[in-house]
Design a protein around this nucleic acid. Structure first.
Lengths: 132, 132
DNA sequence: TTTAAACTCTCCTCCTACAGGAGGGTAAAG
DNA sequence: CTTTACCCTCCTGTAGGAGGAGAGTTTAAA
């Protein structure tokens, strides 16, 4: 199938699919006359796999690994699980960072009148020298 | 003071400070003979302000706005608070997205034996066609 | 005084994961 | 035969810098 159909069926954009071809994460057959890419069912399956893995916040490099495991019927599930647990740990780190951030900002916002007076605890906090 | 000292005192890297100068978010005086940038105390204060605002996840464009308000003694705190509340809302969105992600990944990781057998619920989920 | 280390400068490329658009070829429908 | 909808490559831009080359400057030690 052509790239447009592959894009629709995988939920990716044509640009994205073309990009994945360019960086070699998938390798559809190319028609020598027209230069059109031709995606097989297996190519499509990989694109759908990629779309989902990207939604799970796996980087394209992670996806390369996952895809290699996906294609290898002899793989052990150990590696996949390790990669997943690593990703979960990353997410946890990010979550706690964001939560701290939210609390600090929330505290500042609460303290700020938000009126027309120039006094503003938010800017005060940002310009405080002692707090880093 | 030179860029190195300004960087240390603001907790930024020299590269970052130079970048901020390049994009005009700060404008230190430049020595015409040597080309060396010369940072005043006020420049330093702005760099420290920027370092903190960046930690609070404000984009450099946000920082431009905040800095303008910071420099304007006649500003009202309303604008600053609005910007902050907007940022909090962004963080909330990101938080819930990440939490959903974590749950899904966690569910998959739990279901996966993580042994040497090829069977792997994680890859199964990623390659499921019906689930999008 | 010379020299070596430490600092600074500009300019260049690279990173992630694409998006947007120019300029042109191709395919299918009317 | 023409229109419209695809498809192609190539170039640039995004955010926020990092890394490094090659060259000038300053400072401290020998």
């Amino acid at each position: 199938m052509n790239i447009g159909k592959a894009a629709v069926l995988s939920g990716l954009t044509v640009k994205t699919v073309r990009y994945y071809s360019d960086i070699g994460i998938i390798s559809p057959h190319v028609n020598n006359n027209t230069g059109y890419r031709d995606f097989s069912e297996f190519d499509l399956a990989k694109l759908q796999f990629l779309a989902k893995a990207r939604k799970f916040d796996f980087s394209l490099d992670d996806c390369r690994d996952l895809l290699a495991l996906y294609e290898n019927k002899e793989r052990s599930s150990k590696e996949v699980k390790a990669l997943t647990l690593e990703k979960i740990a990353e997410i946890d780190t990010k979550l706690s960072e964001l939560q701290m951030l939210r609390e600090q900002l929330s505290t500042l916002a609460t303290a700020c009148h938000g009126d027309n007076r120039p006094n503003c605890p938010i800017l005060d906090a940002l310009s405080e020298k002692t707090y880093q």
